[in-house]
Structures are given as structure tokens and as C-alpha cells.
Design a protein around this nucleic acid. Structure first.
Length: 942
DNA sequence: TGCCACGTTCTTTTT
DNA sequence: GAACGTGGCA
């Protein structure tokens, strides 16, 4: 089975992808736009390395950034190999791979093998307490950011250091906090997320032989690496220096996690002779969307002019929709989903729809609207199963059992169930423990033995409970982890949890504390037990967690199941929901934008697109304005195209209409187009104005008669976008339009075909040309240094491997030579800030103008909202031109006027029944998890 | 007076 | 879901 022949691997790849997959260069950089098949290329390369280059799976490391990516990668490699060998690949997130090495070899650098992982809330708690106790007046998030940046920066982060030295008064406080935090973690035997990487770097530096077997290292989403991860990557590959990276500089969304675009440059420096390959064909989006996104990102003038070549046809344009508030927004989404389903004759189902949120906290209203409409959905990212209180409580007990000196876990559960120890008492106990360099656990034990009366007052009654119930319970359980002398076998993970629940009377506790939803909580607990069981089974049969034996390296294999289970929980972003019944059912996906990266759906909503986070968010707190994309008209032509893209069969118009319930709206006209003008009646957004040149058309369109449709949008906007790319002061957002406008534009375009070329596509074609001086996608970070070194380069090199390939024959010599490596690359300052998502502004003196801009402009997020309409603009125009009645109810043009024409009563904001009766509710599918916590149904705006 | 318990506001994004 | 403010019990 191993002899996969080339056709199997290369069959599904285009030319550039083939070159990437089969490259014989020892370091390969694949730069690719979104939707160009990055993951597919990377998985194919792994398969190729195994089947053709004949590397053992166990000698390959594949590192990703998110758990989800890791999971997907594993699955897809599994499919490509076809025989379970992928299980031996060392594959996972950077953190999980690092954890594996530390668990196995960590003792060599003095790490207690029982180390736990401090998750987000642990670390926040610790910092909070430190700041309070030492009376440091720093904001906790800032302190944490400082600490994390400091750790993540790796060894060559002296720019921030310089900045800090400038205001050294504060930096002392930060430093104290940092030091205290670190010693706190140490005392609790915890590593935080960053420590995992830091310590792993330490380990691999001191004991390189841990990775002496590694033949190849592959990194996904390389643009998201930060300094320490870059370091780690090099160390993983230190024996053979074979690395493949895949990334897209335009998609760097982890700037806040210290991801640095510069690492791309560092890579090229440290690994000269890297073969660069760019993938430009886009398989994901229709050309309209590509045009629009290109126009947005191209406004970053200095960005490398990279092309996105559409494979698909035009499709529908992304459109903008403004709604009054979150509630309306949620209702609108629901009605729009219904409309989509209906107009496509069910060709498009829930599985095809995604709602992407900027932050998980925005999901509340949307979830409740979906729930009310009986639509099945699944929330990805955001709340995690393991973060639920009831689960967290159990986990904290387990952590204490495993490792009693974890003060934070202990503090969280010492009063669960209620034992009469309030916040105050806990706080002072923790502080007393810290002062005496004891763990809280030790303090309690001492106290109860009477060895030492704690200064903090503890009532007799509570004391009883602590010693009698709590300590005894935990100690008892811990004892049962091992075989007992009387021959009773140790309890396994599930049994321990079950006993814990019995001892705590947890079910009863839930009933008492949360009478409304104790059942679902208990169900979660059951689920948790199930997961633990699954975990045990997996561990038993998979070598998954173990690292391959390396000659001469003693491994620590004593890590018990509990320890691994806890680590797994901390590092898994969420539990895996594999083929459960619920998964099989179609559902809408609700997700954070971050969690959705790299995934695709035919239909995507992006709610709550308003001003992003500008540096000083304090100054202008909440511009209450929500915007959306407005639904397109589903004309036949477009549906046919969609069907083609999705490779599905489009139901005939008859079928669609036969199944259409009465009273349904064919257009997106149920909500006011101008959220600020509520009484204004809606109409179908068709427009019969004479067609002119499409682009011009837009202009006249919006400033004149039909100003109702997104009045101040599109051209009206001179919104300077101060953001994302930092160089975007002149950004506008082209391409967004309303359904009606688009329709007209399309029609006009159709008519004017040979004569006028649509501006959009001509722009696109233009971008395909590389500016002189850039030789490839990587060109945009080419520095003077490189240029002088490699001499003048042809501007338009054909995509041939220019470097003498270094063949993958023998292992390369061990020592890393890199006099150059430690140098800070000479990169133009503006590029070093090239991160999406980080709204941090360059406060470089060179750009004084920028600051002014930013202060003046409220909007700074990728989705580029238009500015609020100026109050002076009289809404008079809107009433000036009454719409002829027949137009108000006119169905979409694609449908013959004789088919369905359901008149809409005028002046009704929302047809009475549509929420409920408009469409027969889809069978109420059971929602997976997350019982909605909607106690506060009537929740207006703030 | 001290402290537990209950009710009200805002929550980036991931590991 | 955790940080704040107010009320009732020892």
C-alpha cells in the first residue's frame, strides 16, 4: 500500500501545487492566497514525503496553530495515506507538540513531570491577585499581554525592549509582576501556554538529541508564527533542516499573539536556497468576492500585489445591510436564511450557511433567534465545553487530586458545594499561603492538624467541613489512583470521576443550585464522563501521545492517564464532537471569524460589523451601529451558477414555487433599509431606472432618487479606513451594494458587454502583473540585503525552481550555522506592522499624519463600515419619490410576473407571522449542547 | 462590624 | 461567567 504512485498524489493538484508537493528542495516556502488549496497541498506533501521520499511517519513533525487545523490535517493526511500510518506522525498544535516533548524529556531541564497547564483563567487569576496583593496599578490584561509578549518574543525581540526602557518607571512594575507571576506558576508546578513553548525551546537547545530522528518539519499557517514558535520550528528541524512552510501574508490574523510577518523574512534569511512557490488560483470564492476583497486589501499600497485568480464565475456580489440593533440583526438573519432556503428550493441547506462573528460574545441574540425559529445550529469556538461551570468544577477537583498545590483550582472549588467559606476568607487564606511560601493545600492541612493556627479566622463549623469533607474526600480519591495494599485495583479515570461525583453528591448539588437547568448540566457531566472514557480508549490503542524512541534517550513514560487527560483538556480548544447523531444532522454554523479561518461555506453572514478596536477604545466607546450584508436577489441565473459551483442540482422553478409557503417574501425587504428611519416603508429593492454604465450607474444611483437603498453607502463614503493594514487612510469599500443595485448593474453589464469592461475585473487582471523588482510572492519582503546579495533579479521570473535543489538524500550535518540568523532583518518599518486584525498603530514619528486620521475616523475594522450618515442630511428625499405600488411588491425579475406575486401589506415593518408561520418550522432539531441561557428575553439595547 | 449571598454590568480573537 | 454593588445574618 505504501507504493502510492504519483498519479494518486498529484492527480488532484494543479501545476503550482504539484511543484510544491514534489519539491526536492530541503526548505520550501509555499505562499498562497485564501482558498488556494493550502491545506490540500500541505497534506499532499506529507503523503509525498512518506511515500516517495520514504521518511518514516514518526520522523515527521507537522505543527499547526489551532486544534481544529491539527484535527483536519490529521484527517486529511489519513485519507491520503489510507492506512493509519498518520497516527505515528508527530502532529498537533505547537503547544501540544511542545507539551509532548516536555512530558517525555522535561526532567532533563528540571521539570517536574507532573506539571500542569495553566489555562487562561488560571493565569488571569494569578495576575489579578498579584496586582492586588502588591498593590500594583496596572491593568491586568495589559500585564498579561506584557508577560505573554515577553515570552513569545523569543530571543530577538529587542525592539519592544527599547520601547520599554524609555518609560522605565512603569516597566519596573511590569517586571515585578512578571517575576512574581513566574514564581507563582513554579510553586504551583504549572506552565502557562507560553511556557510550554519557552521550556521546549530550552529543552531542545540543551538536548538536541531529543529530535535527532526528525527528518522533516512542516508548518501550517506560517504567517501566524511568533518569535518563539519560529525558534521552535528551527529546533525541531535542527538535525536535517528540512522544512516546509505554508502561509499567506494577507491572512495574518494573530498579530495580537505576537505573530510577526517578519518571520517570513527571517525564514528566507536563515534558509537561503528556499524554494518559493506561490499558489494563486482561488477555489473558494466567486470572482465578485475576490474583486471586492482585493480592492479592500489593495488599498494597502505597499502590500505585495498578489493576485487572486478566480476559478469560479462571478456569483453574487457581497452586499451590505444596516440594521438597527442586535435583535433586528438576528431576526433579519433568520428571515434571510429562510428566504435563501426557499428561493433555492432547498438546494442550499443549513450546512451551507455560516454566521461568522467578530467575537463570541455577540452570539447570544443570534443563537436565541435561531433557537426560536427552530433552526439547528452549532456554535464553534467561543464557549467551550470545558469552560462550563459544572465541567470546570469537576476538572478543578481532578486537578487538585492530581496535583494539590494548584492554588487557583483549589480556591475555585473549596466552596463548591457551599461550605461556608466566602470570597473574603479564601482570599485571605490564599494570601497568607503566598506570604509563607506554602501552597494553599499545605496551609489547610497544617491548620486542620492544629500544627498552626492560621491568622485568618475560620469558624469551627467551616473548619469541620474542610477537614472532614473536603480534605478527606480529595485524599481518599487520590489514594485510589494507585493499587492498594489490600489488593484492590486502582480506579481508572472514569471510575475516579464517578466516585468523585458520588462523594460530592454532585447531582443533588446541581438540583439545588440551579433548579432551572440542572438537567442539562447533569447531561453535560454525563457527556464529560463519556469523553473521559473515550480518551482512555484512545490512549490505550494509540501511540498518539508518545514520541518515537530515539536512540540513547531515556523517556519518561510514567505519565498517568489523569495527567494526560488534564493536559489534553487544557490544550484542546474544545471537545471533539465526532459522528454523534447530532453531528450528522444538517446545521447552520455559528463561529468566530478566527475559528472559521480556512473553512468555507457558500453563504456567509457577518453580523455586528462596526467599529473595531481602536487603540484607545475608551475615547469613543460604543457607536451603536450594526451593519450587515444585504441579501441578494436570487435570480435564476445566479442560482444556476451557484449550483454549478456547489456541483449540485438546482430544482426547477416549478418545484421551488410549488413548495413555497404563502406570504413569503421573495426579496430581502422585511427590514427597513435605513435603520434610523423606522417608519419608512420598505419595498423590494428592484430598481427600474434606465441602465447606464455599470460603475457610473452606482454613483448616480446613490446620490439621487433611490437613496433609500443604503443611503450613504458605497460611493457616498469617503471613509478613510484607519486600520488593519495601517496604510489604509484612503480606503473605500468598493463592490458592496444592494441587491437591487446589483441586479441593475448586472443587467447593464450584460447589455454593455463588448463595449465596456467592468472595472472590477479589469482591476483584477491588472494586479496580476508584478511590479518590477518583485520576483515572486515573497518579493514583497525582499530586503536590500537580499538584493545586493543575489544581484538584480528579473522582475518576472517564470515559475521554475531557480535554486539548485538540495536533494533529500542523506541527513545534513548537525550544527546550525547562522551568523546571519540573529540579525534583525532589514525590513521596512511599515511592513513589520503588516498584520491584519491588529489595530495597533505604528506610532512611528515618520507618520504623524496617521494619528490624526485615526482619531478622526471612528471605523477601523476590516469589514469597513461606512460612517454614520451625517445628521444634516435631510431624509426628505426618501419621501419625495413615492414608489409606484406595483413596484413595491414586484417579485424578483427572474421570476415571471405570472408566477408568484404575493402582495406585501404596506407599512408593516415585519409581516406578522413570518417569524413563526411564514415557513413551516424546520423540524425542531435538537441543539447540540449549549442550552440557551435566555432568561432575559426582553433585552433591549443598553 | 464582618462576611456570605444575591443582583447587575461587560466580555476580542487562540493556545 | 467574572467583577462590582447592596442586603441580611452572626
Amino acid at each position: 500500500m505504501s507504493a502510492t504512485d504519483g498519479t494518486k498524489i498529484f492527480g488532484s493538484l494543479n501545476k503550482a501545487q504539484c511543484r510544491a508537493v514534489g519539491s526536492r528542495a530541503s526548505t520550501v516556502a509555499i505562499l498562497a492566497g485564501p482558498g488556494s488549496g493550502k491545506t490540500h497541498t500541505l497534506t499532499s506533501r506529507v503523503a509525498w514525503l512518506i511515500d516517495h521520499a520514504r521518511f518514516e511517519p514518526k520522523d515527521i513533525i507537522v505543527a499547526t496553530f489551532t486544534v481544529k487545523a491539527a484535527r483536519e490535517m490529521k484527517e486529511r493526511i489519513g485519507k491520503a495515506l489510507g492506512d493509519g500510518r498518520e497516527r505515528k506522525i508527530i502532529l498537533g498544535t505547537f503547544h501540544s507538540v511542545a507539551r509532548r516533548y516536555l512530558a517525555t524529556y522535561g526532567q532533563r531541564i528540571g521539570l517536574d513531570p507532573k506539571f500542569g497547564i495553566a489555562d487562561d483563567s488560571d493565569s488571569r487569576g494569578i495576575v489579578t491577585r498579584i496586582c492586588k496583593r502588591l498593590d500594583i496599578h496596572i491593568e491586568v490584561p495589559l500585564a498579561r499581554a506584557y508577560i505573554s509578549r515577553k515570552k513569545a518574543g523569543g530571543s530577538f525581540n529587542d525592539e519592544t525592549a527599547k520601547a520599554r526602557r524609555a518609560k522605565s518607571v512603569e516597566s519596573v512594575a511590569y517586571e515585578t509582576c512578571y517575576a512574581e507571576y513566574q514564581s507563582q506558576l513554579e510553586r504551583s508546578n504549572l506552565l502557562d501556554y507560553d511556557d510550554l513553548l519557552v521550556r521546549c525551546v530550552e529543552l531542545l537547545r540543551q538536548h538536541p538529541s531529543c529530535v535527532s530522528n526528525i527528518q522533516a518539519v512542516l508548518i501550517d499557517e506560517y504567517q501566524d508564527t511568533n518569535g518563539i514558535q519560529f525558534e521552535l520550528m528551527k529546533l525541531f528541524a535542527q538535525y536535517n533542516r528540512r522544512i516546509t512552510i505554508v502561509g499567506d501574508p494577507d491572512q495574518s490574523i494573530y498579530g495580537w499573539r505576537s505573530a510577526e510577518i517578519r518571520n517570513l523574512h527571517r525564514f528566507l534569511r536563515d534558509f537561503p536556497g528556499t524554494e518559493e512557490i506561490s499558489l494563486e488560483e482561488n477555489y473558494r470564492s466567486s470572482s465578485s468576492i475576490l474583486d471586492t476583497s482585493l480592492k479592500v486589501i489593495q488599498q494597502d499600497k505597499e502590500r505585495y500585489q498578489k493576485a487572486l485568480l478566480p476559478v469560479h464565475n462571478k456569483g453574487t456580489r457581497p452586499v451590505l445591510r444596516r440594521l438597527k440593533n442586535q435583535l433586528d440583526e438576528a431576526d433579519w438573519i433568520v428571515s434571510e436564511i429562510k428566504r435563501i432556503k426557499m428561493m433555492s428550493g432547498d438546494m442550499v441547506g443549513p450546512d451551507d450557511i455560516a454566521i461568522l462573528l467578530r467575537s463570541a460574545s455577540l452570539s447570544r441574540h443570534i443563537e436565541s433567534a435561531l433557537g426560536r425559529a427552530g433552526m439547528a445550529y452549532r456554535m464553534v469556538g467561543g464557549f467551550k465545553f470545558y469552560e462550563r461551570t459544572e465541567i470546570k468544577q469537576i476538572l478543578d477537583y481532578l486537578r487538585i487530586i492530581h496535583q494539590p498545590h494548584n492554588n487557583d483550582a483549589l480556591a475555585r472549588i473549596i466552596n463548591v458545594p457551599k461550605r461556608g467559606i466566602g470570597k473574603e476568607t479564601i482570599q485571605s487564606l490564599v494570601e497568607e499561603a503566598e506570604r509563607n511560601s506554602l501552597s494553599l493545600w499545605e496551609l489547610l492541612e497544617k491548620h486542620c492538624r492544629g500544627d498552626r493556627t492560621a491568622k485568618t479566622n475560620i469558624r469551627k463549623q467551616t473548619e469541620q467541613k474542610i477537614s472532614g469533607e473536603f480534605l478527606r474526600l480529595v485524599n481518599g480519591l487520590r489514594a485510589r489512583l494507585r493499587d492498594r495494599t489490600d489488593g484492590t485495583a486502582a480506579l481508572n479515570l472514569v471510575e475516579i470521576i464517578e466516585k468523585l461525583l458520588r462523594d460530592l453528591q454532585f447531582e443533588k448539588f446541581l438540583e439545588e443550585t440551579c433548579p432551572q437547568d440542572n438537567e442539562s448540566r447533569w447531561a453535560n457531566v454525563q457527556e464529560f464522563i463519556g469523553l473521559a472514557g473515550e480518551f482512555m480508549r484512545d490512549q490505550a490503542m494509540a501511540e498518539e501521545d508518545l514520541l518515537p524512541d530515539v536512540e540513547g534517550m531515556q523517556q519518561n513514560v510514567n505519565t498517568d492517564v489523569l495527567s494526560r487527560f488534564l493536559a489534553n483538556v487544557s490544550l484542546a480548544s474544545d471537545k471533539q464532537t465526532d459522528n454523534k447523531d447530532e453531528e450528522a444532522k444538517p446545521h447552520i454554523t455559528v463561529s468566530t471569524i478566527h475559528a472559521a479561518k480556512g473553512l468555507e461555506w457558500p453563504i456567509v453572514f457577518i453580523p455586528a460589523v462596526y467599529k473595531g478596536s481602536i487603540p484607545h477604545k475608551r475615547s469613543d466607546d460604543e457607536a451603536e451601529e450594526r451593519r450587515l450584508l444585504q441579501g441578494p436577489t436570487f435570480e435564476r441565473k445566479m442560482m444556476t451558477e451557484l449550483a454549478r459551483m456547489l456541483q449540485r442540482k438546482l430544482p426547477s422553478e416549478e418545484v421551488i414555487y410549488k413548495n413555497m409557503p404563502p406570504m413569503s417574501s421573495l426579496e430581502d425587504n422585511l427590514f427597513p433599509t435605513d435603520p434610523n428611519n423606522q417608519t419608512h416603508s420598505e419595498r423590494a429593492s428592484t430598481d427600474t431606472a434606465p441602465s447606464i454604465h455599470p460603475m457610473k450607474r452606482h454613483k448616480t444611483h446613490h446620490v439621487s432618487s433611490s437613496a433609500k437603498i443604503v443611503p450613504e453607502s458605497v460611493e457616498g463614503w469617503n471613509v478613510p479606513y484607519a486600520t488593519t493594514m495601517q496604510r489604509s487612510s484612503s480606503f473605500t469599500l468598493p463592490g458592496f451594494t444592494t441587491a437591487g443595485a446589483q441586479h441593475v448593474a448586472d443587467a447593464a453589464e450584460q447589455a454593455a458587454k463588448p463595449a465596456a469592461k467592468p472595472t472590477a475585473s479589469s482591476t483584477r487582471v491588472g494586479t496580476n502583473k508584478r511590479p518590477p523588482g518583485q520576483r515572486s510572492l515573497l518579493g514583497y519582503i525582499v530586503s536590500d540585503h537580499d538584493r545586493s546579495k543575489s544581484g538584480p533579479e528579473e522582475p518576472d521570473l517564470p515559475p521554475q525552481p531557480p535554486n539548485p535543489p538540495r536533494y533529500l538524500s542523506g541527513p545534513r550535518s548537525l550544527p546550525i550555522r547562522n551568523p546571519v540568523a540573529q540579525e534583525i532583518p532589514e525590513i521596512q518599518p511599515q511592513f513589520s506592522n503588516h498584520k491584519l486584525g491588529s489595530a495597533k498603530l505604528a506610532t512611528k514619528p515618520a507618520q504623524p499624519k496617521r494619528e490624526i486620521d485615526v482619531a478622526a475616523k471612528p471605523y477601523a475594522c476590516f469589514s469597513s463600515s461606512p460612517s454614520k450618515p451625517s445628521p444634516e442630511k435631510p431624509p426628505a428625499k426618501q419621501d419625495a419619490e413615492p414608489v409606484p405600488p406595483e413596484e413595491q411588491t414586484r417579485p424578483a425579475l427572474c421570476f415571471h410576473a405570472t408566477t408568484v406575486n404575493v402582495p406585501q401589506p404596506r407599512g408593516i415593518k415585519r409581516p406578522a407571522g413570518l417569524g413563526r408561520d411564514g415557513i413551516a418550522p424546520i423540524d425542531r432539531l435538537r441543539k447540540p449542547f449549549k442550552p440557551l441561557t435566555i432568561n432575559k428575553q426582553l433585552h433591549g439595547q443598553r
